[in-house]
């Protein structure tokens, strides 16, 4: 069985799906990614589907599951590079991929992850400051 490679680039795991995946390959990717997120501590996952000429309900569901599992493991997933014809077909099929963040290409996906990470860190800092303030005033 073929396997989709998962590359680590800085704080991001990058997956570029270059083959017409059998269902088992998609399920294997789901498992591989969860393991790599935990092993590397990466906070972002980018899945490039620009070479996929179709996304059917099975692949769509797999992408949604990957996004949910990543979130539970403290990583954000962005699906990038969807072809226009694929987007039209997916919506008509009835699959609007709720809960999945998308960007037009890898570069914009990386920017999106960097922004959302920065926002999360600001929130965390604010909470720390609030905690400290509470301590000093008491």
């Amino acid at each position: 069985m073929e396997r989709v490679p998962v590359l680590k680039i800085g704080d991001i795991l990058l997956v570029s799906i270059q083959i017409d995946m059998e269902d088992q390959v998609a399920l294997q990717l789901q498992e591989d990614l969860a393991e790599r997120i935990v092993a590397t501590g990466c906070h972002g996952v980018i899945i490039d589907i620009s070479t996929l000429d179709i996304v059917d309900s099975f692949v769509g569901r797999t992408l949604a599951t990957i996004a949910s599992v990543s979130r539970v493991l403290d990583a954000e997933t962005v699906v990038v590079g969807m072809r226009p014809a694929v987007a039209i077909t997916l919506v008509e099929l009835g699959l609007s991929l709720p809960g999945i963040r998308t960007a037009l290409n890898v570069e914009l996906g990386i920017e999106m992850l960097a922004r959302s990470r920065a926002e999360t860190e600001v929130e965390l800092d604010d909470e720390d400051d609030a905690d400290q303030a509470a301590v000093t005033t008491s």
Partner: peptide
Amino acid sequence: SLVDQTKLVTAASELAR
């Protein structure tokens, strides 16, 4: 057309599965 190809292949994928 490209969109119709995509729709037909997607439908075939669902039904073959």
